[in-house]
Design a protein around this nucleic acid. Sequence first.
DNA 1: CAGACAATTGCAGAGACTGCAAACTTGCGT
DNA 2: ACGCAAGTTTGCAGTCTCTGCAATTGTCTG
Lengths: 199, 199
Amino acid sequence: MSEPSDLRSRKKLATYRALAHAARELTAERGLEAVTVDDIAAAADVSPRTFFNYFSSKEQAIVGVEPAVLEDLAASLLERPREERPIEAVAAVLLERMTTDAETARRWLLRAELVERYPSLLPRHLAAMADIERTLVTTLAQRMGVDADHDLRPMVVVSAVTALQRSTLAWWNRGGRTEPLGDALRSAFAALATELAKP
Amino acid sequence: MSEPSDLRSRKKLATYRALAHAARELTAERGLEAVTVDDIAAAADVSPRTFFNYFSSKEQAIVGVEPAVLEDLAASLLERPREERPIEAVAAVLLERMTTDAETARRWLLRAELVERYPSLLPRHLAAMADIERTLVTTLAQRMGVDADHDLRPMVVVSAVTALQRSTLAWWNRGGRTEPLGDALRSAFAALATELAKP
DNA sequence: CAGACAATTGCAGAGACTGCAAACTTGCGT
DNA sequence: ACGCAAGTTTGCAGTCTCTGCAATTGTCTG
């Protein structure tokens, strides 16, 4: 959460954000194929070459997840109450960000729309989701006091929660967004519990 | 499952497979960055331009899923016994292919290794998994006699099963592959059921 | 201020990918 | 068998993505 005081680091972060921001905005208004890396670099006031010091591709800049967000997620997960069960804690961390911070919510919806509109964004989008998964697995293992290489549970919990979250969000976004997202998610968990219960 | 009798279609399928095969083999032996699209096209005896009539990128050729496989998965799912619960049916369809057909198993393991070795394959790999998900959701909705746009359950079941399958496979592959894959999967489902149960 | 270190930039070049029009192959009706 | 219609392959020209390298500029530390 803490922004670095270091000038060098602050500039670096600013450049990162300027590039990501330019990438998203230009794509949203002009369309994906009408935006080149040169355009993005120009909008962020850096050389095209610098773009590739930060991102490995145009798509990455649009749908990538900022490292600080990952750290943030990890911190949030560690701060959840001890008595909360793992699955609740992980779900809460993810939902929390969507419902608490309007700017975050706006950004995730924009992302969802762009991915919907331009299927070529899907691969990198899923890779970004995988980054989140990796972070959560590591952190949850730490929180549970187990080793993620030997104990399946952290991975199982995280992959199930993120899968539900991701697919429910897409579903909710495709449909009219009638009910609140939190309700849709609760339904999804309930449905899974029902389907999973031995008859 | 049925191969087309049509000459045109048979040639097309053959070209598709020759390209995909060349892409996988060349990458496995030479390494990803040492293989160009021109190399792949040459190995498959077609022009480089033709490669792009079949695949949208080199990565796609390596880790993409053949349309016939998707149809195959759908068919398998529809053939599962009626009384089997959705979650079992989906899990069975996926596990079945790995354990029944040695060639399929070999191919999935090679794929897992390549993705592990070359992270730049991950995005397209995940996109390919998403293709499988889409197919399964549609088919499962049909099997359950519901509409996937209104009823969350098909999507919930499929995304949970595929997430577990995918992550368990990666875990099992990273570890020594000591226990049988089926056992690992069963453990994963059991763990999820436990974590999901309200206390 | 000076030297160490980090980030930016330009340049050159390989390779990925697309649109288009010409050539070729296959399918099908006569 | 013939020839037209439809589907596929190919070459070509050109744009854009992405990388390595070496030079430059900017920031930090003592």
